[in-house]
Write a protein that binds this DNA or RNA. Structure first.
Lengths: 356, 356
DNA sequence: GTTAGGTTTGCACACGTGTGCAAAGGTTGC
DNA sequence: GCAACCTTTGCACACGTGTGCAAACCTAAC
């Protein structure tokens, strides 16, 4: 208001007050644009609000001024009013693992396409669980939180829900939580794997997992063991190391030197590829001496050096379900939590003997 | 103020005004905490501001109230004042490619560790360039922008710089831009690769790249071709397809059926692995008949099925340089743009004949 | 008891934006 | 020319936070 009466003085006054020098200039505000265009600040705001009432003349002048000054609306201030941002918090660890990377790639792409942005927090260093990360995300007033790694305690999930922020757990445990959960059908997948090995005539069977006691690991391994036992076979079990290629390699060396297996299920493709390389190193011919099945169908499994038979979970289905859950939030309904179990399918390649 | 005189009426009044029902309750504000603790809002703010002046008694009461109500500071509002957030914008595409995934993994992890958050925008669908994405990022008043994909025109970079937002280009072109650029030493790496092949006795040499005309591609291919020509050899060139494993496979089929090569440099490990598989498929023995060198040293290159000899760029060096650039921004200095060229090294594995 | 000095507290403003409301302006029909 | 109506515009408030400033309070020294 004083600004219009004495522009130069106010301008320098403002700079003094904010203690900013010219090299680190602040952002252009709608006030600046309004002044240049000779209109009120409201007119500027309305120009950038679809469906608002502005005359063509004013709109043009404002746009011109905005372009001249390089004006960008401040989403922080905007979100302050609407009390919601277009941000979606994403918690993930080991982003370089093929399956995780692919998941993040698709999710971030689709989020952007639908006008949302992705606030990514890497849970790698989260020794005390991911609760602090979720608390941090909440401070950004996100629209929803997607958890791809770690197991949030139900207390923090409740807090999110109480604040209207949906929590979507991807391939995490599904029991006793109030969150949306989207998992691939681990039980059925493991069962299919077991049956495929049995059908190939395997009788000395093993199962390979990492030492991490994640729900996914446990489900896949458990369902596989159960099914194999039904056939009267007690499988050899490997469960140590991290979720990595090297673990598969170690498992091959460990299991194959102790048992003469002819069929192995690895709960993760990445470990399956390591196991395959390890088995070859030990002179086993795949699939003639030994059949191997993985889970996930990562891109590397299709590579010519491997051609791994595996259980595929559809990545696009998964992404789509996550997005559906996020967008369901917007309608403001309640109590309609998603508990989706996505179907899996067997992908036949070259690491299991064809049924005789 | 009226609130303390007639709490219930004001409360319902407020709800009516905001048109919110109980299912979608708003977040708790510092005002709410202050009321419960029986102090002013300033006291609440100061309690959560390190180094502010609050008595132990008040601090305790506030913390108690905050815990009871589940208060989370609103970072959007906070950033509105300080005119800067702890956000760092990251632009990347093809996040599932091993090299990119690894880069993002390290970057997001380190950012979080230093108290910053990662605003990730996937540039996959950016047909009209990444300028719109950067504009979007600017609206969040980020502290800096890291570009790992696409080539931003200098106009948008200038705008960022004018607003005090550093732009850091990772493995992008370095000429004629006002941004920080951090690239690995492509020229030297390609030269080392060429010399290694020549030293192994290769004389019928090829080079494989994708059809994408990215600066990295061009630099690596160009430097390699130059060095080979110095030795009086004209290399066969493959340059089509995407940046993928399949491209390497196609290249092997195409190049090897036309020329009887004994040494090949692939500008990317991913393509090298495809090429290696393709060469094997065509009956070539590696490294006896044919030597192959890649670039990047992705994790898959160390796998037993490949054991690819390659040029390594240190991921941790790269991440560290990016972070250093981001943090240099905070000091507010000017004109001290980074133009780093990170050293590379040859990693000897099993796809090049040992020097006789 | 008084004063000086330190600590704690609340007021009030600022940050940049969206939007209800009423005033102003413009158009049309009689 | 006037009334009725629609469009456009500006004012003023709201969002939730941080912080300078001065008042209030407490402590200790004289």
């Amino acid at each position: 208001m004083d600004a219009e009466q004495a522009p130069p003085e106010t301008s320098s006054d403002r700079e003094d007050h904010l203690k900013r020098d010219r090299t680190a200039r602040s952002f252009v505000t709608s006030e600046d644009v309004a002044r240049l265009a000779g209109v009120s600040r409201s007119a500027v705001s309305r120009t950038f609000t679809p469906g608002a009432s502005v005359s063509a003349d004013v709109r043009h002048r404002v746009q011109e001024a905005a372009k001249t000054l390089g004006y960008r609306v401040n989403r922080l201030a905007r979100s302050l009013i609407s009390d919601q941002s277009n941000l979606v918090g994403v918690v993930g660890a080991n982003l370089s693992l093929p399956f995780m990377a692919r998941q993040l790639d698709e999710l971030s792409r689709e989020l952007l396409r639908r006008g949302m942005q992705c606030l990514l927090l890497n849970a790698a260093e989260a020794e005390q669980g991911i609760t602090p990360l979720i608390e941090l995300i909440l401070e950004f007033r996100v629209r929803a939180i997607v958890v791809m790694s770690g197991s949030p305690p139900s207390s923090i999930i409740d807090e999110c829900m109480a604040n209207g922020v949906r929590v979507i757990l991807v391939n995490r445990q599904d029991d006793d939580t109030e969150a949306d959960t989207i998992i691939s059908d681990d039980l059925n997948g493991a069962r299919i794997a077991a049956e495929r090995l049995l059908r190939a005539g395997c009788r000395r069977i093993g199962v390979v997992g990492s030492g991490a006691q994640t729900p996914t690991q446990i489900r896949r391994r458990g369902a596989f063991v159960d099914r194999v036992r039904e056939a009267g076979i007690e499988p050899a079990v490997w469960a140590s190391g991290g979720t990595a290629y090297e673990t598969g390699m170690d498992a091959a060396r460990g299991l194959l030197s102790a048992h003469d297996l002819d069929g192995v299920f690895c709960v993760t493709d990445l470990m399956a590829l390591g196991f395959l390389d390890g088995a070859r190193e030990m002179g086993r011919r795949v699939p003639d001496d030994l059949s191997i099945i993985g889970f996930d169908d990562i891109q590397q499994s299709a590579w010519a050096a491997y051609r791994l038979t595996t259980i595929r979970q559809s990545m696009s289905d998964l992404t789509e379900s996550v997005l559906a859950a996020i967008e369901r939030k917007m309608t403001g309904e309640r109590g309609d939590l998603a508990h989706e179990v996505l179907p899996v399918e067997l992908v036949e390649r070259a690491t299991v003997r064809s049924t005789s």
